[in-house]
Simulated assay, not measured.
Amino acid sequence: MTVTVTNELNFFTTGDGVRIAYRIDGSEEKPVLMLANSIATSLGMWEGQIAEFTEHFRVLRYDYRGHGGSDTPAGPYSFDRLGRDVIELLDSLRIDRVHFLGLSLGGAVGQWLGIYAPERIDRLILSNTSSYLGPAEQWYSLIDSVLHTENLTGFADMFVKNWFPAHMLETENEIVSSFHRMVLATRAEGIGGSWAAIRDMDMRRTAALITSPTLVIGGQYDTVTLPSHSELLAKTVPNAELNIFPAVHLTNVELHAEFMSAVLAFLLQTE
């Protein structure tokens, strides 16, 4: 495992030879908060929250394999591999424990960590995510189509329609445009590989093994990870808190102030 440093992005190489990009912001004296992104985005999806988070935490962000500045190995991927990418990154930085906030795909990674590496997680936030998005059959055609597309424009249009409310899509919106560009910058193999991990995911029962204090955040109008998925997750994880916002999928962007208020209140609790 090797670690290299550039101006903004740092890189480390996983045990299976994949270079993963990451970034750290904030004071070394503060506890570490790790952020994990939605599929088809980069660590830039948290840019609007970094100033507030770094008032309280040292913030660690990273790009999944196939996303952002990271390498793109051939798929399919699995949550076992995506979870071990996190563990290896923490090991490379000599970080024992973190608070972990994952949204969408990141929330599924967070569930895996809470189940299989509980000793590495302090407080856990699972936002706009699910423990199961089956049946598996529905994913095969999507994976095949993204792997054989000539460009990702149609998929970028699909993603932003799933992520944002209608009023943000009706007129030119720089935030929406920035996320559209993030999708276009993602490699098809990264999207297809990650969809394969989602296809094979079922943590509906094992999520009951999570022991970290957990906050589940859902979107009332989320058509990707339905409110019922958040409700089931909150019922499954012992003593989990549940907060459903009047939002679509990217609650951190659409309802920034409300999202940050809930997240910081949860993370700054003293036991």
Rank of each mutant, 00 (worst) to 15 (best):
residue 102 G to Q: 05
residue 102 G to F: 08
residue 105 L to I: 05
residue 105 L to G: 00
residue 105 L to Q: 02
residue 107 G to M: 04
residue 108 A to P: 10
residue 108 A to E: 12
residue 109 V to I: 13
residue 110 G to S: 07
residue 110 G to V: 12
residue 110 G to Y: 09
residue 112 W to E: 07
residue 115 I to N: 15
residue 115 I to K: 12
residue 116 Y to I: 11
residue 117 A to N: 14
residue 118 P to I: 08
residue 119 E to I: 10
residue 120 R to L: 10
residue 121 I to S: 12
residue 122 D to L: 07
residue 122 D to C: 06
residue 123 R to D: 06
residue 124 L to A: 11
residue 127 S to K: 09
residue 127 S to H: 06
residue 128 N to F: 01
residue 129 T to G: 07
residue 130 S to C: 12
residue 132 Y to K: 12
residue 133 L to G: 02
residue 134 G to T: 09
residue 136 A to S: 12
residue 137 E to W: 08
residue 138 Q to W: 13
residue 139 W to M: 10
residue 140 Y to H: 15
residue 146 V to R: 08
residue 147 L to Y: 07
residue 149 T to N: 07
residue 149 T to F: 06
residue 152 L to N: 03
residue 152 L to S: 01
residue 154 G to I: 13
residue 154 G to D: 12
residue 155 F to L: 08
residue 156 A to V: 09
residue 157 D to W: 00
residue 158 M to D: 07
residue 159 F to Q: 05
residue 159 F to Y: 04
residue 160 V to N: 00
residue 162 N to I: 02
residue 163 W to M: 06
residue 163 W to L: 00
residue 164 F to C: 01
residue 165 P to N: 08
residue 165 P to E: 05
residue 167 H to R: 09
residue 168 M to G: 08
residue 168 M to K: 05
residue 168 M to F: 08
residue 169 L to C: 02
residue 169 L to M: 03
residue 170 E to W: 01
residue 171 T to E: 05
residue 172 E to N: 06
residue 172 E to D: 08
residue 172 E to W: 01
residue 175 I to T: 01
residue 175 I to W: 00
residue 175 I to F: 00
residue 178 S to R: 02
residue 181 R to D: 05
residue 181 R to T: 03
residue 184 L to K: 06
residue 189 E to R: 14
residue 189 E to M: 10
residue 192 G to K: 00
residue 193 G to R: 05
residue 194 S to M: 01
residue 194 S to V: 06
residue 196 A to T: 06
residue 196 A to L: 02
residue 198 I to C: 03
residue 200 D to F: 04
residue 201 M to I: 05
residue 201 M to H: 02
residue 201 M to G: 03
residue 203 M to A: 11
residue 203 M to W: 13
residue 204 R to E: 14
residue 205 R to I: 15
residue 205 R to W: 14
residue 208 A to K: 15
residue 208 A to Q: 13
residue 209 L to V: 15
residue 210 I to Y: 14
residue 210 I to W: 15
residue 211 T to F: 09
residue 212 S to K: 09
residue 213 P to S: 13
residue 214 T to S: 14
residue 215 L to A: 03
residue 215 L to H: 05
residue 216 V to F: 12
residue 217 I to H: 03
residue 217 I to D: 04
residue 217 I to L: 13
residue 218 G to F: 06
residue 220 Q to P: 11
residue 220 Q to A: 14
residue 222 D to E: 10
residue 223 T to Q: 03
residue 224 V to H: 06
residue 224 V to W: 06
residue 225 T to K: 08
residue 225 T to F: 04
residue 225 T to H: 09
residue 226 L to H: 08
residue 226 L to V: 12
residue 226 L to N: 10
residue 229 H to T: 09
residue 230 S to A: 13
residue 230 S to N: 08
residue 231 E to M: 11
residue 232 L to S: 14
residue 232 L to M: 14
residue 235 K to C: 11
residue 236 T to P: 15
residue 237 V to G: 12
residue 237 V to W: 13
residue 238 P to W: 10
residue 239 N to V: 15
residue 239 N to W: 15
residue 240 A to R: 13
residue 245 F to A: 03
